[in-house]
Amino acid sequence: DLSALRVEEVQNVINAMQKILECPICLELIKEPVSTKCDHIFCKFCMLKLLNQKKGPSQCPLCKNDITKRSLQESTRFSQLVEELLKIICAFQLDTGLEYANSYNFAKKENNSPEHLKDEVSIIQSMGYRNRAKRLLQSEPENPSLQETSLSVQLSNLGTVRTLRTKQRIQPQRTSVYIELGSDSSEDTVNKATYCSVGDQELLQITPQGTRDEISLDSAKKAACEFSETDVTNTEHHQPSNNDLNTTEKRAAERHPEKYQGSSVSNLHVEPCGTNTHASSLQHENSSLLLTKDRMNVEKAEF
């Protein structure tokens, strides 16, 4: 173990290094160091905050020279020094078990990766560091076993998940096959086929009936047209017969005018059967003409 005197000496050296690497504005270890034209180094955030307070150039807090945003430059070497100082402080805390008085939040800088452990060898070769390295080497064999167990647990979990997924996939297939086998029997399929065939026959029977009705309507229309044509021909046949009657009536009127007047009046009210309204109107006109002729003949006879 380190003596108290040596611990104090190391602590004083760390404090001196820390004062050199402090920012003059925030009085902390410089984060993202930036250098000016006057070779003074500050935190990048502190300098941008200072420049944004005034429009135009501002003055350096140490030498009062003008500073602009374009004049600022990043210093990589200074950032490396800060990183190495942080590593020294971490090693000091691990070796002594004491917390550094002016320690900052170094938890963000710590890294437990194997590459980081290899890099620590180049920091300080001390008894405390050696003991700590031995402890780490002793704890390393235990870690692979834990990793193997965790991997086995994960693989077993994956296997159970896969088996569950396969079961879920197989179950719908089985149910679907069961439904297909038990849903419709052979008799049901035959009945469905016969039902479809009967429906098709009914459709075939319905369509000819409609065509037959249309044919019957067409035949009825044709018969009505033929009947009207026969009526017209009958009226045409009746007209010459009426003319013959008129000639006979004229002759009778010349011989017996008194008797014919009474008979002509009675004939006005008689309509021949089986004739249309057109034929009756023609008869009325003929009878009126005959009456006028008879009157003329009677007057001539009187004179």
Rank of each mutant, 00 (worst) to 15 (best):
1 D>N: 05
4 A>I: 04
4 A>D: 08
5 L>W: 05
5 L>F: 07
6 R>G: 07
15 N>L: 14
16 A>E: 14
17 M>A: 01
19 K>Y: 02
19 K>G: 01
19 K>R: 06
19 K>L: 01
21 L>T: 06
25 I>D: 01
26 C>Y: 00
27 L>G: 04
28 E>K: 00
38 C>N: 00
39 D>E: 02
41 I>N: 11
45 F>D: 15
45 F>S: 15
50 L>H: 15
52 N>Q: 11
52 N>C: 14
55 K>C: 11
57 P>S: 11
59 Q>V: 09
60 C>L: 01
62 L>G: 02
66 D>F: 09
68 T>H: 07
68 T>R: 02
69 K>Y: 03
77 R>S: 10
77 R>K: 08
78 F>M: 15
83 E>R: 06
84 E>A: 03
85 L>V: 08
88 I>L: 13
89 I>Y: 00
89 I>S: 04
90 C>N: 15
95 D>E: 00
96 T>A: 01
101 A>T: 09
102 N>K: 06
106 F>C: 14
108 K>L: 12
112 N>W: 08
114 P>A: 11
118 K>W: 05
124 I>F: 07
125 Q>L: 02
125 Q>H: 09
126 S>A: 12
135 R>A: 04
135 R>N: 08
137 L>W: 07
140 E>W: 06
140 E>F: 05
144 P>T: 08
145 S>K: 01
146 L>N: 09
147 Q>I: 11
148 E>A: 08
149 T>K: 12
150 S>E: 13
153 V>K: 07
154 Q>A: 08
155 L>D: 01
158 L>V: 12
158 L>I: 13
158 L>K: 15
160 T>Y: 06
161 V>T: 12
162 R>D: 15
163 T>F: 05
182 G>E: 02
201 Q>N: 15
209 Q>T: 11
212 R>F: 10
220 A>Y: 15
221 K>G: 10
222 K>N: 11
222 K>H: 12
232 V>A: 04
234 N>Y: 11
238 H>N: 14
247 T>L: 07
251 R>T: 11
255 R>Y: 10
258 E>F: 14
259 K>G: 11
263 S>C: 08
264 S>T: 12
264 S>Y: 10
271 E>S: 09
274 G>V: 11
274 G>H: 13
276 N>T: 01
278 H>L: 11
279 A>K: 12
282 L>G: 02
283 Q>G: 06
287 S>L: 11
293 K>S: 10
298 V>R: 02
300 K>I: 10
302 E>V: 08
